[in-house]
Design a protein around this nucleic acid. Sequence first.
RNA 1: GGACUCGUAGCCUAGCCUGGACAGGGCACCAGCCUUCUAAGCUGGGGAUCCGGGGUUCGAAUCCCCGCGAGUCCGCCA
Length: 592
Amino acid sequence: MNTGTNMHDPWEPFFNEVEGDVKSLLREHGVEGTSLETPPPGMGDLALPCFQMAKKLRKSPQAIAVELGEKLGGKNYAVEVKGPYINFSYKREELLRNTLSALEMMGEDYGRLGRIGKRVIVEHTSANPNGPFHVGRARNPIIGDSLVRILRYAGWDVEAQYWVNDMGKQVMTLVWGVKNLSEEDLPPPERDKVDHIYVRYYQEASRRLEEEDVEERINHMLKEYEQALEDGDLKRHINHPKDKPTRAEEVKEIVEKVLGGMDSSLKRLGVVVDRYVYESQVVVDGTLREVISRLRESERSREEGGAYYLDFSDKPIHGKSKRFFFTRSDGSALYTTRDLAYHLWKLSRCDRAINILGEDHKLQSYYLREALKELGVEKLPEVVFYSFVSLPEGKMSTRKGRVVYLDDLMDEAVRKAKEEVEKRRKDLSEKEMDEIAHIVGIGALRYNIIKVQPEKKITFRWEDALNFDGFSAPFIQYSHARACSILRKAGEAPTPTVKFVERYQEEAELELVKSISLLPHAVYEAAKSARPHIIAQRAYEIARSFNEFYRDSPVLHAPGEIREARLALVLSVRWALSSALNMLGIVAPERM
RNA sequence: GGACUCGUAGCCUAGCCUGGACAGGGCACCAGCCUUCUAAGCUGGGGAUCCGGGGUUCGAAUCCCCGCGAGUCCGCCA
């Protein structure tokens, strides 16, 4: 269990020592393959079950546990044999010492691990720029952004990328709509925001797509646009008035406008994108052309009516999906082909690539992966798939008008948070209450998404989405604010230091230290396995143990040395909680 | 029809990859706690055929097989 985080992780000395000792002892006895596990609470911190060795050593597991247990013991751990189990406990003084030392060293950065010196690119959101975000896909930016933040804490150099689809029919449909429809053709926008204003053009244009000539016109525009891009001539006018912007310029302008509206929603959510990469880029810079010619040379490559595909009949996929078409019969590229070009570009710029995708992209992602292998790429992207958020009445659908927009959800969350603040804090100014309402409302929203595993489907219910109690962001934020309040009243708090090792004797204090001590390891795990909900859990546990400590151990009214040590502990809680919340993109308020 | 994912108390969820000691939480419900640092809190309580059936194993929520239910995909769309 080498976490590679050395002095940042208080648990490492314990894990390393126990693991090392157990391994060599088992080797002496010629029994391998038994591994340490986490025992139930109250039974220590690591456990070694002895059932497996029973057959080989021809003794009862209980006898083996006793025998082996006697030979174990170390600087960091104590051993206790319980039936067929050997339990290892991290010695309190060592746990305290190592935790306090990490806190002392890291300060408010507690939870951050050492720099790895490697680069990871996280691609998330990448929603089509044709209208506002709806809740169905809201998991994407939340999972992606949290992962970005966690990876940064874990020591990676991270870049968050948004792959913008500025090609293809959906975009051209929007462009056609903007050019050909007028305000009278459209219902009033649901809100005064660019993406909401423009989505109406897209929706109406999509409806008219049923009409033959509209479809033809859009296809024509698309071809013209693609041709200009492929020729690398964005200034070229083809069948297009000379005194107007070119098609390419038009597309760019409209896409950027809509994207601007979408981006403001992301900003409000606290999501930060470092770089927008446009699909058209891979066409203009020639990467796409190169990918196509390399794919055509592949042994899997087949041709049918001028269209090219890779043949995956030998792979465990069936029916039509055995064939991955990468060009149309007119030679133009398809979406996944452009994605492939993007991935070549991306993978050459990082040590690790993570994509956040909706589960509907699984097959496409499989093609991408296999095609990359076909091109001789060894470093493949890791993919986090998430299931959709649906409504109790069914799947969200823009066309059927059965959607909850992210903007509305954020409004509602903030509104409800405002109500709650007003109930409790009559002393605050309107401005302060609004700030807190925003922090709490948005925090609750993000937390409710991130706390569950991405592959679970979510049915959207307002009462769940706006839950502010228990396992929720406000609970954690509240604990943080409580800690801040104590520190504020104390005026000054001593920095946690190993000198306080002896001063934490009460159960609630020890539990709290232990809870805090587990944060760095949680960061390591969450970053390694790309599972942000691990941090959500840890944050909750820390807040919970702090609330228990709060009940049992008075801080401000405690006598001299104890007060000092407890204040240092409260400061540690503040650091740990604000780090954890920060990793989830949730603001840690000083008061609420 | 095939492939992938999910199925844990009234509801939501952790644990599943790497099988082990009584399946952790939360919401809702019931009973308590504001003369002490913010009650968005704390304490206690009831509530679980871990979807069903087989198998592997000393041991299965966890691994394998067969079902059932839900979601997603199976386009020269994105």
